[in-house]
Amino acid sequence: MLGTDLDGQTGLWAAGLGVLGAIVGSFVAALVLRWTADRSVIHGRSACDNCGRTLAAIDLIPVLSFVVLRGRCRTCHTPIDRSHLAIELLAVTIGVVAGLTSPGPTGAAGAVFGWLLLGLGALDLAAFWLPDRLTATLAAGGLISGFAGLAPDLEERLWGGIAGFGVLWLVGEGYRRFRGREGLGGGDPKLLGAIGLWLGWRLLPAVLLIASLFGLGVVMGAALRGRPMARDVALPFGVFLAAAAYPAWVVMIGFAA
């Protein structure tokens, strides 16, 4: 009987965080598209980028509107940016996985962690930009979770924040001194520091390793397609850090359960 109750509770948390993820994903998609176009996220109603028609509520239902409208504006039939759908689906997945991993406050906190990483990763992919205010929000969330008593403990989180920032800052500074130019964006150390405030210091080596492997995979994939990258081609390392950090949280909480 207890197992049935727990399964039902898990399902409710997964469903609830999944629905909330769809809403958050819609906001994150709008944030990415508006910030990269230097537009306000708060002011102004959503409108078609091509014909300018103000979107109605039926046009703004996360995921469902895209499917029903077949990915096109209802008025001018211009294709809707597919990144909208991709971000919304990823946000739903983050919420569902968090709810399944740890139904309750820990899962809700993990979903917030994933959604903030999603926003940062999407902005870095779109514009090589990791906004300080969003990274600071991620860092604050890690600290709040630690003060609330969620695993890992606050001391481990603080050391994770220090180590995360310090390691990548030293790498970037060493590269700059050795090569005479920037090789690592200034936002990457801040992002890894914020991730450390969520995961603690123990998982940071794994996050860095996986993120580096993601980057190596992108380079190797380009080479296999006959488009090798030059040494000075920039890669959005923040995307790789974000993609490595959320699964690390899932594994950490899964083993702790």
Rank of each mutant, 00 (worst) to 15 (best):
I210H: 00
R53G: 01
F128C: 05
V19Q: 00
G16S: 14
A223T: 12
L64W: 05
V218F: 02
A257W: 06
A108G: 06
L20E: 02
W129M: 14
V24M: 11
A242S: 08
V171R: 12
T135I: 10
A127M: 12
V32K: 04
D38H: 14
C73H: 09
V239F: 05
H43N: 09
L168Q: 10
V207P: 00
G21S: 07
S212G: 09
R70D: 09
V219N: 03
R202F: 10
T106W: 01
T36W: 02
D5Q: 03
G183H: 14
I87K: 05
G11M: 07
F237P: 00
D7H: 03
T54E: 11
I58L: 15
R74N: 13
A243K: 02
P236C: 07
L6A: 15
A211Y: 00
T75L: 00
L33H: 14
L224H: 13
T10R: 14
A248Y: 03
F165Q: 06
G11F: 11
G18R: 04
G52V: 04
G141Q: 06
R181P: 00
A37N: 13
L89F: 13
R181W: 05
L138I: 15
W169Q: 13
P103W: 01
V239E: 04
A109Y: 13
P189E: 09
V167S: 06
V19N: 00
V167C: 09
A86P: 01
G71V: 10
